[in-house]
Design a protein around this nucleic acid. Sequence first.
DNA 1: GTGTTATATTGATATTCATCAATATATAGA
DNA 2: TCTATATATTGATGAATATCAATATAACAC
Lengths: 107, 107
Amino acid sequence: MSTHQGVCCPPVTEAALDLESSQRLATVFATLADPVRLQLFSLIASQTEGSCACDLVDTLKRSQPTVSHHLKTLYQAGLVERQRRGRWIWYTARPEALNEAATLLTC
Amino acid sequence: MSTHQGVCCPPVTEAALDLESSQRLATVFATLADPVRLQLFSLIASQTEGSCACDLVDTLKRSQPTVSHHLKTLYQAGLVERQRRGRWIWYTARPEALNEAATLLTC
DNA sequence: GTGTTATATTGATATTCATCAATATATAGA
DNA sequence: TCTATATATTGATGAATATCAATATAACAC
């Protein structure tokens, strides 16, 4: 963290972002910008043992392909990890990814 | 901030969000999810005295209506304030809004 | 008043993407 | 192998939105 006019500033306000940095950061926010996907992430993150994908369709009231699509998006953004257990796949949150995003916004 | 299984958790991971909460939070993230809009906000936030809208079109290399549209989005999301000075309108960042967003992500 | 400049709005278009049905892939059990 | 189940992928569609040209509004200078 550095300073700007004597006040501690997060990266977003410290200096103007160039287009490339903006694109990278915007991708993080875009991942959380869909309400269904955000709820999906919250569901997974609220269970320390993670969540079985088999349980998420019912809770979200979305089709299986839609849930699978959102899980893929979260995975590719580094927000969740996946682990196969037999026929099932369990997803767990990566809180580090959240911290990285928050670090961009605050000191 | 409360705890979950003995570990301090931000709201997003503390408990599963319902759909309504997810929609509200997702709106905050969606505002920052466009690279041009994020860069625009960063430009404004990096100047403590704010930025004149008249200077932003050249920097962003977008049309005047496009910049105006993004400024409106930022304003409606509470991320910036506007102030008319003669023929010009100056925009300043509201860092509180950033803190609110970050608070959702971390302890 | 007229003219000039700064910003906002309207309307149209193209792109992105959330969603689902259908299908494919993968794993376990018989 | 065959069947059943869990998850992923493909393809199509509709909705949301980023973008711009044209126009409108607002404020100053004259």
